[in-house]
Design a protein around this nucleic acid. Structure first.
Lengths: 345, 345
DNA sequence: TTGTAGGCGTTATCAA
DNA sequence: TTGATAACGCCTACAA
């Protein structure tokens, strides 16, 4: 036990044992130059004293801090939590500690996070950039071999990429509505400066183009990805006096399941039925999504594959010391449940 | 930019400038002894070179690593994610980095996590113990002033506590069923070695006692808190030939909303209706819970208050340097929705 | 106002 | 087989 006040170090162990601290260090690290008796004695004493090696000193001395830093925009997003957890649990098996940072979709906070991360000398950095502007990425120049970028592709960065085809996600969302006869559609999404939102919307526009249906930018509503935000926006759209929406529409695509539930909530409050009056498509496919009333049609974000890809990159780089730079492109797919009405029937 | 290969340190800045590195250090830290001109020159050069201070060295030297370590059992649990995020975001404002560890309800992994945490010399440790056995807690003896224990109370540890009254949570769950005429009830929970599960079950038993209804331990089913686990258990209970459950019951209490949805899923598969055939009460009150079909009756875990309590303790200790040891006791409450049938009507 | 020296806990190198 | 020493990057007395 660290009974006393002073922390137990190899020096204090050495002192107690009347030997040099470099011997203690070697003994503790299983250096074969140390006599077995000595090693046992040192290990015993270390346990007795409750010795814990100081990672800071180790990191300062050596070339590895056994640390992985993850910078996401919203760690409350269940998909991201899942991915983070997978990484953390897997890498913990190899003695790595995973630190997580939340940029909250703010460029300034992203910058601050990158600087903090840099100061902690991690062995690997995972970043979900929150802006199409790549200014913050410049801070990471020169460490591409230990950097994974998530979301969009950044051609300017020769680093690892875990790229989800959000364009395709948007395209699938829109096609689901268009193919069922919807023409007037709304989009609820995060600001388009957020690279993946941009791709999502681009995919939606492409679908409308393919269907030769006009799509106007004023149909895009930008907001944080929370139930509350989706709810609020819908309420603002609702004209309580006229008992109808200020803009005519039949379907809504949301770049997040939470936003979809905001729509659910508002619809319920205004006596609008889903999917009879309003069709909704979410994004992410949060596990509980299938239990909602009605079960939500949504785009499945391949979280398992994303997590696997991370683990693969991390393992091959950190454990197997491979130097290859890799890109994984993952495809989302539509999960058709009951929140979209077929207007053609 | 860290353009070159060698990392930029105060030494390299000093060298470039032809001054001593201690002057650089002082300049960068705003030491008033340094001439304004020098300071500006140093800061400029530091920016130019893309200098990032090395936290490891700082931590090794000083007495603070500006680090908070959190050890939870399942960071995918939305309530815990919420709490963690609140802590991380708040403390980031003061330059603190928050590390999170997942013990997965395993005593061995908890031990490993504590040791890792210790080696990283954090300024504060937050732990949700996963075993009534307090062996692992011994590792944290002597650092009670920088330790917050979450969940049950540990009388043996004179540290900060964020205590949720899970006993009351269990009691409320059971009363909801009992007051509506349910007599035969099942409990789905994590192993009772997990302190808060134990309290939860104790609360349930107390309610049955108060109602003078017998409650047998074989009604308690122990499992991980996932949708899949709840589903599996329910399926095992279902006798497909007889089209009924092997044990008669009308209500189920689950120590987690996920388990409740496992029950939903299985019920749907076997043609059982909620709440007509089976009544269900969850735990946590995950935000989307109100949108499920039927909306889930559940026990609200006061996540906001928990987060606030953490932030209060952390702020007063780390920022205001207060030494007082505090305990917050928070009360869960029942949120009555539509998953429990009133048998008395 | 600036520079020098020592030390935080480790590991690695070299000498004994 | 063990011990002394230097170095990792930083901060802080203390000296100049």
């Amino acid at each position: 036990m660290s009974s006393g006040n002073r922390p137990v170090t190899i020096k204090s162990i050495a002192q107690e044992l009347g030997i040099s601290f470099s011997t203690v260090s070697k003994a503790l690290n299983g250096n074969p130059a140390i006599k077995e008796d000595t090693r046992r004695m040192v290990v015993k004493k270390a346990e007795e004293l409750g010795y814990t090696p100081n990672s800071l000193a180790k990191g300062l001395r050596g070339n590895s801090t056994k640390t992985i830093a993850v910078i996401f925009n919203d760690i409350e997003n269940p998909a991201l939590t899942f991915i983070f957890r997978s990484i953390a649990i897997d890498m913990a098996n190899f003695g790595y500690t995973t630190m997580i940072f939340d940029s909250q979709f703010s460029k300034a906070r992203e910058r601050a996070n990158i600087l903090t991360v840099l100061s902690r000398q991690p062995d690997f950095i995972i970043l979900e950039p929150n802006n199409t502007n790549t200014e913050n990425l410049q801070l990471l120049k020169g460490m591409e071999h230990k950097l994974i970028l998530q979301g969009a592709r950044y051609e300017s960065m020769a680093c690892h990429h875990i790229h989800v085809d959000y364009f395709q996600g948007g395209y699938l969302s829109a096609c689901e509505l268009l193919s069922k006869g919807h023409r007037e559609c709304l989009v609820f999404t995060q600001p388009l400066t957020f690279p993946i939102s941009r791709l999502y919307v681009l995919g939606i526009k492409k679908a409308f183009e393919d269907y030769h249906i006009p799509f106007d930018d004023d149909r895009i509503f930008v907001m944080p990805s929370t139930i509350a935000a989706g709810f609020k926006r819908m309420q603002e759209l609702w004209d309580a006096g006229q008992k109808r929406y200020r803009i005519p529409f039949t379907g809504i695509m949301t770049f997040d399941d939470n936003l979809a539930y905001g729509v659910y909530k508002s619809a319920a409050q205004n006596g609008q039925k889903i999917p009879e009056d309003i069709s909704v498509i979410g994004f992410d496919d949060t596990p509980i999504t299938e239990f909602s009333a009605p079960p939500l049609t949504t785009v499945h974000l391949p979280r398992e594959k994303m997590a696997e890809s991370y683990v693969q990159i991390l393992n091959s780089a950190l454990i197997d010391h491979q130097t290859e730079i890799r890109t994984f492109t993952l495809e989302p797919y539509l999960v058709s449940r009951d929140s979209v009405r077929n207007l053609l029937k």
